[in-house]
Design a protein around this nucleic acid. Structure first.
Length: 376
RNA sequence: GGGAGUGUUCCCGAGUGGCCAAAGGGGGCAGACUGUAAAUCUGUUGUCAGUGACUUCGAUGGUCCGAAUCCAUCCGCUCCCA
């Protein structure tokens, strides 16, 4: 479980022990929604870039290839040949992102498959059963991620329902972990804090869910369009009420700057599609800020994507070549850039952990907080 | 040699007298993307000056208040017949 190694004010250096291995925190979880990193990275590549946790999605895998197939194939670890921890997101966020088709009821959510349009029902029990079939290390609670901005009354009712759903998730997870046929009988369950940007709802909800004594706690419903100052405010607000002895996860966040702010406020783990999605669109993270490798000014640039990076892409290829690959629509362009960006994120987390070890986090933070999110 | 077409802004391609600096697509340039359906979406793309002005639709000349659009000649390309 979670062990706090040391604090640097509210920032935490820790380690999280699971049946699938130990995660050094703060950490970034690499997003492989459909059990694959978009852009053509293999689980071998993930090992090479020192990824600690892979994240997959319940909803997507339920549709294709189906959780039954993954289960028959021995679970996600065996299926993907990834031996380290895997976190599965519950599908709750998809209800939010596929908003036009959703119908939310007390029992769960009715919505349509984005693949063939067929009607799907998913509630807390369904989500737990699917995640148990997938046999991930960590299952996320089935929650409702309310869009921003939201009405107070709706947010309040939604939070209360998310709490009731969480109770049902916990009961179902306990039952599933006790079954003989379950692949991972030690599957962990994380609860998710909601409440939009209403301080009292956030705090009240956090207090309610901490009573359930779960394996970890996530902050959800952020980075959905609110100003970043508001996001940081909510993190600090909620953090005070999170158990000190449990791992904290800020869902779907974010930019390097967002992550530094999150770590500073006591968050342990993050995930985000930005490094991979942006890489596929030519936006490259470097230690001097963000570049768009597709820009004409790189046509004759013989230097690597990032002079300060020691990843294989930066050691072997020039900006000019990678820009050419994009212009020629070669998939190698995406692969190289996704590889670099994820390497950058994992490397960023390593440096953050080192700075916490050395008590130099504040210096590190000051040096990079604005720089890394700035476009060059 | 005879006949029929055709030439548009970087490319392809609409436009057949004023609402045309000229549709649409491609390409180019730039931007967006935060628990990933999407290799997607958005803006821009004659020049200069932010009203507007100027140059442009193969070339030259003409008709008209006004032409990418009509007429004449020339040049290039395509197809058919000999």
């Amino acid at each position: 479980m979670y062990k706090l190694i040391k604090n640097c004010k509210t920032a935490r250096r820790g380690q999280f022990t699971t049946v699938h291995g130990v995660v050094q925190t703060p950490a970034f979880m690499n997003v492989a929604t459909t059990a694959a990193i978009k852009g053509g990275l293999s689980t071998k590549d993930l090992e090479d870039i020192r990824c600690q946790v892979m994240l997959c999605n319940t909803y997507h895998l339920h549709l294709r290839p189906t959780d039954a197939v993954v289960n028959t194939m021995g679970g996600l670890q065996k299926f993907t040949n990834w031996k380290k921890p895997i976190l599965t997101d519950s599908g709750g966020f998809q209800v939010f992102s596929l908003a036009s088709l959703r119908k939310i009821k007390e029992e769960g959510v009715y919505f349509a498959s984005h693949i063939d349009g067929h009607k799907i029902f998913m509630g807390p029990e369904e989500s737990m059963r699917i995640q148990s079939n997938l046999a991930s290390t960590i299952a996320m609670a089935f929650d409702e991620c309310v869009e921003n901005p939201a009405q107070y009354d709706y947010s309040k009712a939604s939070c209360q329902r998310t709490t009731r759903w969480l109770q049902r998730c916990k009961a179902e997870m306990n039952r599933l972990n006790g079954l003989e046929s379950t692949i991972n009988k030690n599957q962990l369950l994380f609860g998710i804090n909601q409440g939009c940007c209403f301080d009292d709802l956030r705090v009240e909800h956090m207090k309610e869910i901490r009573e359930l004594n779960l394996d970890g706690y996530a902050i959800g419903g952020l980075a959905v369009g609110e100003p970043k100052e508001e996001m940081y405010h909510v993190i600090s607000l909620v953090e005070e009420h999170m158990p000190k002895d449990k791992i904290r996860y800020l869902m779907g966040v974010g930019t390097p700057g967002n992550i530094l702010e999150g770590v500073k406020r006591g968050v342990d783990i993050f995930d985000c599609v930005m490094p991979s999605r942006n890489a596929r669109h030519g936006h490259i993270n470097t230690w001097n800020g963000i570049i768009n490798i597709k820009n004409a000014k790189y046509q004759l640039d013989d230097t690597p994507l990032d002079n300060e990076c020691d990843c294989p892409v930066c050691k072997n290829y020039s900006r000019a070549y990678i820009r050419h690959l994009f212009k020629a629509e070669e998939m190698l362009a995406m692969r190289l850039c996704v590889y670099h960006n994820l390497y950058f994120y994992n490397n960023l987390m390593e440096k953050i952990r080192e700075s916490l070890n050395d008590d130099t986090f504040e210096i590190f933070y000051k040096k990079y907080i604005d720089l890394l999110d700035t476009r060059i």
